[in-house]
């Protein structure tokens, strides 16, 4: 029998969450502590399989002794921390973060949770005025650091712009982008190590971009689709899904999800085939799968057309196996 090293036992740290004393393993984040206590904490830029970047600030909590609020998703617990997750300050900041985002970004595909948070924090994105008209294609990409057009105050500036449709696999609709950095992380050191995309520009003109905004086919992109897998707002989307949505035919109630194993190589990645009307409309992988952690390669992600290729009419006269 061989011993299996399972790591040192983690020490426990005592913290007070909303008046309740609790013990959590050393090194946990406040978010993990909240989840362990069943305290719901909204998150947008956090994902289990990525390094926390703590940029969206919707998860902020109040830690006694700290001047500003702190992001729960990345702050490790410290012994004796006293944390408030639902104080007036926390609620104001969370509401404002949601309002600011919703007033500038199309969140309509960001999922029911976001809608629920908007309601429960009383977010009213209309307070900043009517949205400004969308920018032309590539306009935001040409914005220069340190300059912007003077606003007239009559409307609220947004990131609305035409979607970038430049390849057969997936579409980038940055009018839905909340700049959560997840796609950059997935394309970079957290998964794919391709570094095809990065954050460019600064301030409100910061955006996800390839070098000089070249189209994906001219970039380093290998179409692994891992950026799509982590995008929380539908800014990155399978072309198949995008087309169906545009034609009004997308209907999740008519879809089934079949879990299978990728047929291409021996790694054993789990695939979830989303099927509507007997066509595969997108492919995902479970975040908690040992092998993939939600990430795939181009074959598993996009290499499915053969499955649904209509049987070709046999014109060789040799039969299906080509001769027998």
């Amino acid at each position: 029998m061989s011993a299996v090293f399972v790591g040192l036992p983690r020490r426990m740290v005592e913290v007070t969450l909303d008046g309740r004393q609790t013990r959590v393993p050393e090194g946990s984040t406040l978010l993990e502590a909240c989840r362990q206590q069943g305290i719901e904490t909204p998150t947008l830029c956090y994902l289990e399989n990525l390094t926390p970047v703590n940029v969206c600030r919707v998860c902020v909590v109040e830690v006694e002794g700290s001047r500003a609020l702190v992001p729960a998703c990345s702050r490790p617990v410290e012994p004796g921390m006293v944390v408030h997750t639902d104080s007036e300050r926390v609620r104001t900041s969370r509401r404002l973060v949601l309002e600011l985002l919703a007033s500038s970004v199309d969140l309509s595909l960001a999922g029911p949770e976001v809608e629920r948070w908007m309601r429960s924090y009383g977010a009213d994105p209309g307070r900043f005025g009517p949205p400004a008209p969308p920018r032309g294609a590539g306009e935001r990409d040409r914005a220069r650091a340190g300059e912007h057009l003077a606003p007239d105050g009559a409307s609220a500036e947004t990131v609305a712009q035409p979607a970038k449709v430049d390849n057969q696999s997936y579409v980038r609709d940055y009018s839905r982008c909340i700049l959560c950095y997840k796609c950059v992380e997935a394309c970079g050191v957290d998964a794919q190590n391709t570094f095809a995309i990065a954050v460019a520009g600064r301030g409100f003109d910061a955006r996800i971009s390839t070098e000089f905004d070249v189209g994906l086919p001219d970039s380093a992109c290998v179409y692994c689709g891992n950026c799509i897998g982590v995008c929380p707002t539908g800014a990155l989307m399978f072309k198949s899904e995008y087309d169906l949505r545009r034609s009004g035919a997308w209907d999740e109630s008519r879809q089934t999800v079949t879990t299978t194993v990728c047929p291409y190589c021996g790694v054993g990645c789990n695939l979830e085939l989303h099927v509507q009307d007997n066509r595969i409309v997108k492919v995902t992988s479970p975040l908690d799968h040992d092998v993939t952690r939600g990430h795939l390669c181009v074959k598993g992600r996009f290499g499915f057309p053969f499955v649904q290729a209509a049987p070709e009419k046999d014109e060789s006269g040799l039969g299906p196996a080509g001769g027998e």
Binding site: R57, E147, I178
Partner: peptide, 17 residues
């Protein structure tokens, strides 16, 4: 608005508003 790095929502959008 010009000098915000754009990383976090409160400053990126707040300075615009």
């Amino acid at each position: 608005r010009d000098e915000s790095c754009g990383q976090c929502v409160p400053c990126r959008v707040g300075t615009v508003r």
